[in-house]
Computed example of a mutant assay.
Amino acid sequence: MGLPLYQVDAFTKTPFCGNPAAVCVLPVFLESDQLQAIAQEMNLSETAFVVPTAAGFDLRWFTPVAEVDLCGHATLAAAHALWQHQGAVGDLLFHTRSGTLVARQAEDWIALDFPQQPVHSLEHPKLLETLTAALGISPVWLGQTASDLFVVLDNETLVQQLSPDFAQIATLPCRGVIVTALSHAQDYDFVSRFFAPQLGIPEDPVTGSAHCSLYPYWREHVAKETLVGYQASRRGGIVKVQGAGDRVILFGQAVTVLQGELLGLD
């Protein structure tokens, strides 16, 4: 028999927008090389593997080339799939490399409880030179999170018009590069894009984990407790974010676009 497999567009309520993730529900985890092979076959920015347990669900995330420590959109997709297709009810507890993550239903949104990842100023002339060459524009501020470089540009149009050199970005010592600017649109407080060719993802359509850093940075610049971010990739997506101590609550929506079975594991 096959294993349940779903493709879910996350951080959107419109099919074929947002960030697609595969969600595979397993009785127990397969060997890591098998999980990696499945993620490579799915060829999406993330594949989430979920195993039900007595204490909730164990959850792992894989890009086409590597396992990662934290992924927002694939967690959102997993929660959506469990509620919509697997009969799950109530709050969901996901046990992960980044600790326990909680998903809750909040009317027509899904709320994810994630750890904040603060941004610290980074003084590194050589790195700044490489980033400027890779992005084709000089940042107005450079920072670093626990895993990513954090680049602030002068305005949202510059973020939207970026055409990076992914080969140069892939040489940088980080998981990926968050590029952001303040938004003057009525519906959003800031815009962002996320580039991670190091992980086989030249540009991630919508990156929940990046908003764990975008929130604390922009909260210092925007006098609001709840911020709305628009990730300005080709597909685009919306992430609402609230602070909760040293945590952030990410709000997103999701829609299933494909349902089937994973075969070929005998």
Rank of each mutant, 00 (worst) to 15 (best):
E203H: 01
I201F: 03
A146W: 04
V151L: 04
V25Y: 10
E156Q: 15
D187N: 11
D148C: 02
V50W: 05
P197L: 04
G18F: 09
L30N: 12
D58F: 03
A133F: 00
P164F: 07
T256A: 08
A39S: 09
A81P: 13
A244N: 13
I110Y: 13
C71Y: 14
K13Y: 02
D9A: 04
Y215W: 14
A37H: 07
E203D: 05
P118H: 13
D58K: 12
A77V: 12
R104P: 00
A48G: 12
F194H: 06
Q253P: 02
K240D: 06
K224C: 03
K224H: 08
T47N: 05
P4A: 09
I137S: 01
I110P: 01
I137C: 10
C17R: 12
V239L: 15
A37Q: 13
G176M: 01
N155F: 07
Y230S: 13
G2K: 13
L112W: 10
F49H: 03
G229W: 04
V28T: 14
W141G: 07
T14L: 07
Q231I: 04
S45P: 15
L101Q: 02
A21F: 13
A111V: 11
L182H: 15
N155S: 10
P64K: 09
G56I: 03
T75I: 10
L199P: 02
V140W: 07
L258C: 05
F190L: 13
L35G: 13
L263G: 01
I38W: 09
H120R: 12
L93S: 14
V68S: 08
W141D: 11
T53E: 04
T180C: 15
W218K: 03
S45W: 03
L44M: 14
F114D: 02
L258T: 03
